[in-house]
Design a protein around this nucleic acid. Structure first.
Length: 612
RNA sequence: GCCCCCGUAGCUCAGCUGGAUAGAGCGUCGGUUUCCUAAACCGAAGGUCGCAGGUUCGAGCCCUGCCGGGGGUACCA
């Protein structure tokens, strides 16, 4: 329905508070060779294996074979011996035993053990901790996130329609898009975050038509955009009603709506005035939403600006034979590519969605010089984007192959599909107050009330985590009660674990010198500690995977899993009461956890809190 | 009809690109606070990973065919 309205580029205006905008992590000067601490142990294992295998290692990607065993007590990295069975003509468990015997412990490798068909390697926990801690201190850990092939990429998302209600369903797009912007930046890409406002067309005309027909209706002081949304809905219902009465009645109403559109296009004074004013209300509302969410854009496109350019593209490529006339309309014929045909101009001469998208894409390539182009749009538009990209290819744009539709599924309510028609869609302004109310109801107690700043952060965390912890291809069920539940798999739980870390640090006080190496006999390295440590080490791979899949849910899972592991550590391993040097080691681990979590949550657009 | 997505515990979902005994949360039952935030932790119960074949040393993951749910399929965005 109101899916995606997009259009031309604006002036690089920023929506939302610049202060709420988290820039990409500062890049480390390239003169500092990255140490990549998470790979120290792994590369030692690979080297040891290569040595032990000799000629048998040829043709095997040893690093790719290594993965963590299912449980920490089994080791930190496992090498499966199945592929060797053919080469060595021996059963895998036998090979594993031979290899384990042939590889000596030493350096970061504390122990080597054969377990069935696997060779399991144990890392020296103190050495790992020190490597991670130093890597976080000097920035090399996050430097390891960076891709070897940085590129200029545009990520288009949000695409709200003016004159319609902005509701929970639209929030998912914003969360996914914003997270991708942050992830791509962390990976070192040059990212242009783009919004594309649906601020023109027949739907806008519908709303204005209804307003003109009901001059006695006055906009409320609060909630003007909701009022516009209601006008739009009322107009839609009126049209449907008329159509129900008969062909003529329906056509009559549609004709009068079209007159409003024509008046808009021709700049007729009274309509234009109304259009400008109401459009601005909506843009202001969007800006305040993005501000609250901490989401920013580098450039704005408007549908209202693309009409002319779109028609020019159609004329151009009609002349070049890329487009053809069919049944009175102009089409992009994609039958041979298995994509049916895409209409680029209606038989009445009007342009459509595809027309503007062609002009927009051209602008992205030519004006912004983007190498890669992401479109975060609902899955119902899959065919549209297949057709768009295929058409761009036919027009000669090589970079069409680097265009990608990041599709995601609908947001549902516990009672089922939401419908703005039935009024079941929760408009954003209600959403905000309802979520905050739920947070207060659950977090406040007799002694103290949670402060507004923290409540806001928790509310945003609950919303974003709720939207992001499910894979893009699955529907999300929005349930305020569930999402704000302080117990369980929610954003509140994540922030709570960070608040506990902050608590430890407050009580540890100043004057703790964390920058010492942990001595090997500190006793550090019980399961809860190693489990957490290993998990933190896997962070760069997770980020790389998110870039690849364009699905931030892996990052959400990473943080949640990490919070679980931290909670176990917190429960089983007293930090402040531990004796030195164990205390130092645990303080370091807590500090590492804090840094990685804060960073990972940051990529999801979630701010940490100091206390809850 | 054709195309795309989804099907994993009662419910909501993970499952690291094919590896070890399939994991969480909610809900249910039972434990843990003179101890850094119990918004937590531990344990129990709960599974023919939609069905049937196939590939493979090995399949929840890959291939084929069915079944079920959703979306799309020339003048809406």
């Amino acid at each position: 329905m109101p899916a995606r309205a997009r259009a031309g580029r604006g002036t690089g205006t920023w929506h939302g508070h610049a202060a709420a905008w988290t820039p990409a992590p500062p890049s480390v000067p390239s003169s500092v060779p990255p140490r990549r601490p998470c790979t120290v142990f792994k590369s030692a294992v690979v080297a040891a294996l290569r040595e032990a295998l000799g000629a048998d290692a040829e043709g095997l990607d040893l690093a790719a074979q290594l993965s963590p065993p299912p449980k920490v007590e089994m080791g930190d990295l496992a090498f499966p011996c199945f592929p060797l069975a053919k080469i060595r003509k021996a059963p895998p468990p036998k090979i594993a035993a031979e290899l384990a015997a042939a590889i000596p412990a030493g350096g970061p490798i504390a122990e080597v053990k054969a377990l069935g068909p696997y060779v399991n390697f144990f890392a020296d926990p103190a050495a790992m901790l020190t490597a991670l801690h130093e890597g976080l201190e000097d920035g090399s850990f996050f430097d390891a996130l960076r891709t070897d092939a940085p590129t200029r990429v545009m990520i288009e998302f949000s695409q709200p329609n003016t004159h319609k209600v902005f509701h929970v369903g639209h929030l998912r797009n914003v969360c996914v898009g914003d997270a991708l912007v942050r992830v791509f930046r962390a990976r070192g890409h040059d990212v242009v975050a783009a919004n594309y406002y649906g601020d023109f067309g027949i739907d806008v005309a519908k709303c204005l038509w209804w307003l003109r027909g009901h001059p006695q209706e006055e906009p409320p002081v609060e909630g003007r955009t909701a009022w516009l949304g209601q006008a739009y809905t009322a107009a839609t219902l009126t049209v449907e009603e008329a159509e129900g009465q008969g062909q003529e009645e329906g056509d009559a109403i549609k004709a009068s709506i079209r007159e409003v559109l024509t008046a808009m296009e021709e700049g007729e004074a009274e309509v234009t005035e109304l259009y400008r004013e109401t459009r601005q209300w909506c843009l202001d509302e969007f800006a305040s939403i993005y501000g609250w969410l901490g989401v920013g854009f580098d450039t704005d496109f408007f549908e209202s600006e693309l009409e002319e350019a779109g028609n020019a593209v159609v004329d151009d490529y009609l002349a070049k034979g890329v487009f053809v006339e069919s049944r009175g309309a102009i089409i992009s014929d994609l039958e041979e590519q298995g994509l049916s045909v895409a209409l680029v101009r209606k038989s009445d001469g009007a342009s459509l969605y595809m027309t503007w998208d062609l002009a927009l894409a051209r602008r992205k390539f030519d004006e912004f010089d983007v190498q890669k182009s992401l479109y975060v749009v609902g899955s119902e538009q899959t065919l549209h984007f297949q057709q768009l990209f295929a058409t761009l290819g036919n027009m000669g744009y090589e970079r069409a192959k680097d265009c990608r539709h990041v599709s995601y599924e609908l947001v549902m309510l516990p009672e089922g599909k939401m419908s703005s028609r039935k009024g079941t869609a929760i408009p954003f302004h209600q959403l905000r107050t309802r979520v905050l109310a739920a947070i207060h109801a659950k977090m406040d107690d007799a002694e103290h009330e949670v402060d507004p700043d923290t409540a806001d952060k928790v509310a945003v965390a609950c919303l974003k985590y709720g939207m992001l912890h499910v894979g893009n291809g699955r529907r999300v069920v929005f349930d305020i009660d569930d999402w704000t539940n302080p117990e369980g798999d929610t954003g509140a739980y994540l922030l709570y674990s960070l608040a506990r870390i902050a608590g430890i640090q407050r009580k540890a006080g100043e004057g703790v010198d964390l920058a010492q190496a942990v001595s090997p006999d500190s006793g550090f390295g019980v399961e809860a500690e190693r489990g957490l440590l290993n998990h933190l080490m896997s962070y760069p791979q997770v980020v790389a995977r998110v870039e690849d899949s364009c699905d931030p849910s892996a990052l959400a899972s990473f943080v949640y899993e990490g919070a679980k592991r931290f909670s176990r550590f917190y429960q089983e391993c007293p930090v402040l009461k531990a004796d030195e040097p164990l205390r130092l080691a645990r303080l370091q681990l807590a500090a590492c956890t804090q840094r990685v979590f804060t960073e990972a949550l940051g990529l999801l657009g979630i701010d940490a809190v100091e206390a809850m």
